[in-house]
Computed example of a mutant assay.
Amino acid sequence: MDSRTTRISFALTLLAVAAVVAWSRYPEFRDVVTFWDTRAQNSSSPIFSAASGGGIGDSSQQVTASFQNVASGAEVILHIRSNWHVNANPASLDYLIPTTISVEQGGEVRPVTAQYPAGVNSGIHVDGQELKVYEDGTRIPVSNVPNAADARLTVRAQACRTDGVCLPPADIPVTRNMR
């Protein structure tokens, strides 16, 4: 082999070794999907300090949901960790994942009738538009929810940190038996 080919092969081998070392040494970076803020990519300080454990997993580690009956019907309440949010419904941009609520009963999954509230301004701008999000404590009125023991509500959401790091979306079970 000529010296140019040898140098290229050496450089590719070195990059592959660096990727394997980074993958094994920094598991918290494995599941990150999106960086809205390129400054976060270039930061020397860890941006995942709010995450618990060794990795940050999917959105279900940052978001939970509960169901309660209220005078006007029923509602799903989002419980979102500090410094995190989820996209509003409708999402601010076509390619973002909106928060949705569905019910599974008898093996079938269908959306529930939900009155998704307007999102709040996140302070994050993408493609010239400020993103609308839901924060901790957001209440989503729902109706036409079956009252059967086998009916299970699920929230589909994508959690993002206020610095723009987004996790893979997750189907989050809604706590409380709907009997």
Rank of each mutant, 00 (worst) to 15 (best):
D2S: 12
D2V: 00
A18N: 07
A18F: 11
V21T: 09
S24G: 08
Y26F: 10
V32P: 01
S45D: 13
P46Y: 04
F48Q: 10
S49P: 01
S52M: 05
G54C: 02
I56C: 13
I56G: 02
Q61K: 13
V63W: 01
S66Q: 08
V70L: 12
A71E: 10
G73T: 06
A74W: 03
L78F: 03
I80P: 00
R81D: 14
H85S: 14
V86N: 03
N87W: 08
A88D: 05
P90K: 07
A91W: 05
L93R: 09
L93T: 10
L96T: 06
I97C: 01
I97Q: 12
P98R: 08
V103G: 01
E104M: 08
Q105S: 12
Q105L: 14
E108P: 00
Q115S: 14
V120Q: 11
N121H: 10
S122I: 10
S122R: 03
G123D: 10
D127V: 05
Q129N: 12
E130L: 06
E135H: 07
G137S: 05
T138S: 08
R139D: 03
R139T: 08
V145R: 03
P146S: 13
P146F: 06
N147Q: 13
R152G: 03
V155G: 01
Q158D: 06
R161T: 12
G164Q: 02
D171A: 14
P173L: 10
T175N: 07
N177I: 11
N177C: 01
